[in-house]
Write a protein that binds this DNA or RNA. Sequence first.
DNA 1: GTTAGCACTCGGTACACTCGAGTGCTAAGC
DNA 2: GCTTAGCACTCGAGTGTACCGAGTGCTAAC
Lengths: 333, 333
Amino acid sequence: MLDDRKASILRAVVEEYIETAQPVGSARIAQVKEVNVSSATVRNELSVLEREGYLVQPHTSAGRIPTDKGYRFFVDHLTPNGGLQANQRQRIRDFFDTTHGALEQMLHDTSRLLSGLTDYAAVVVGPPHEAATVRSVQLVVLAPRVALAVAILSNGVVEKRSVDLGSEPAGDDRVAAASAHVAAQLVGRSLADPGRLTPTGDPVTDDIAAKVVAGLTSGHDDEENVFVGGASRMAASFDAVETVRGVLTILEQQYVVVTLLKDVLDRGLSVAIGAEVGLESLAECSVVVAPYEVEGEAVGTVGIVGPTRMKYPQALAAVALVSQRLGRHLSES
Amino acid sequence: MLDDRKASILRAVVEEYIETAQPVGSARIAQVKEVNVSSATVRNELSVLEREGYLVQPHTSAGRIPTDKGYRFFVDHLTPNGGLQANQRQRIRDFFDTTHGALEQMLHDTSRLLSGLTDYAAVVVGPPHEAATVRSVQLVVLAPRVALAVAILSNGVVEKRSVDLGSEPAGDDRVAAASAHVAAQLVGRSLADPGRLTPTGDPVTDDIAAKVVAGLTSGHDDEENVFVGGASRMAASFDAVETVRGVLTILEQQYVVVTLLKDVLDRGLSVAIGAEVGLESLAECSVVVAPYEVEGEAVGTVGIVGPTRMKYPQALAAVALVSQRLGRHLSES
DNA sequence: GTTAGCACTCGGTACACTCGAGTGCTAAGC
DNA sequence: GCTTAGCACTCGAGTGTACCGAGTGCTAAC
């Protein structure tokens, strides 16, 4: 643990570096009023902080830069709360007051909002579709042997799967029967817990019905349930084009992104810094996440991805507030 | 118009520059066997080509690089056909042979395919939802005053809009009546041509029905009907991070992308080069597009966005083949 | 019309040098 | 004993110079 002086010096270094992206020297720190000592004393402390792994020097005769460990301490112990400006808060409030329409669109817009607030890339993972109850199921024939199963859920999500009707064209009546049968079975339940189909007596109908239920309940959820906004902002955060490429490649793989956020949350973190993120390509990035709750239960995640040199106070506040408001908004509807 | 020798010299410059990204000098060109003259002669021709605007010198004592006009000539007159490797063709064939499932997913995957084939960003614009006929319409109440209108179209697309039911909660029967009424009206027709609603006699029902139809037919289509794949590859095409940022910002704005592709097609082009693209941020990019046809009618577009220094033969071939196969694939289902 | 030859241009690289930011250490001071 | 002024030292960044070589444009010969 660091004593007060070391802590405030570390804090000064981190804040200054986040601001300027330049290595910070002892003289600049000595000017910070919370640090009431001379630059020589600061230098002594800096070398201790470096020895203990909180800072590094890019080269002799340069200032210091925080390490992941330095950022970690800053985030855990030195981050002031409530770093969000009034107009930012207003923007969030306005957004959730005026937003409407389909869930997907709303989540997508939320990711853009968060990205706009922070100037980093933002990620929103939607509530699992299984959480909602089924309001309606329908089977529509598209081609002689292909039908589309469409389930409308209570949260406005529409799940659809194409279903192969089998080798020989089933009659329309069979399809209709299967549709009605599945509807009777699933409506009011969750897709996660479809229950067991009761046979109708007609094997063809039962076969189709089983396929429909299997299709609808097999969630390739994660793939489609994540919204990344403002990925282009990553290009402003780094000046090595190679780094940008790596980060963008990750952000394009929705499955990876979802897993990443889940991982961070599972580790009980709200911030993962640099190497903590666990992906080579994101070694220079930090990830800030927060779950959001609907009726007291965490159902999804919002987060941002930015450089380790991130404005943590604002980022944390923005993510926290957006996740909270998003949860509340979803609870209302 | 350029004589044969100038043309083959221009061609050599363009091909070499595309390959190496380095200004091309007269000596290198003189080595190309199609150009059977000495470097001195080449130099004379180069200075003519420069005077006529096909080439520029970054500075005296450097080689030449093509201008937009130079690329344009190359594309129009010098591009060999069929520049696609066998395994690339195979990849496309395999993709369309094995792909299945929902249209959106398939278009999304197509954009990734095309991006993977070319190493540039790829764009796929889906068929307008209005083109298909309605197979089913349903109105599902989600909240006291909000319902979701869901239309299932013959091509497997599901259109949904949330509909405000009005200030006072309408009875379930009214909603059901409206739902049935709209269904009777729309099924079998296109959303582009919904026809006129016949009044039922009940003003509340009619009011809801009108809202549903209005919602479903007002296409904010373009926004949701475009799929961009492999945007991260743009980072590999430029070394100025600022350029990358600009390009990515454009690619994130789906509306802009759709408009862009439409523009290019409307101008009767299959390639727009540099300034021809018409967007400041894409001044260093070229766009290759091709419409795809379903039953003889152009219904959508595929395209790629890459640097002006693009491998045009392969890019053109890939876009052409993918668009053709995509059209065929959609016609079959 | 083509080409060999050559003077010339100019960016890139290497090198030396300076400047200054920043350090670490030491010795004096509170 | 902790703090701090002072100072020697380090080293990157910036600058000026020289040089090299790629590449040109021009001229004169073929």
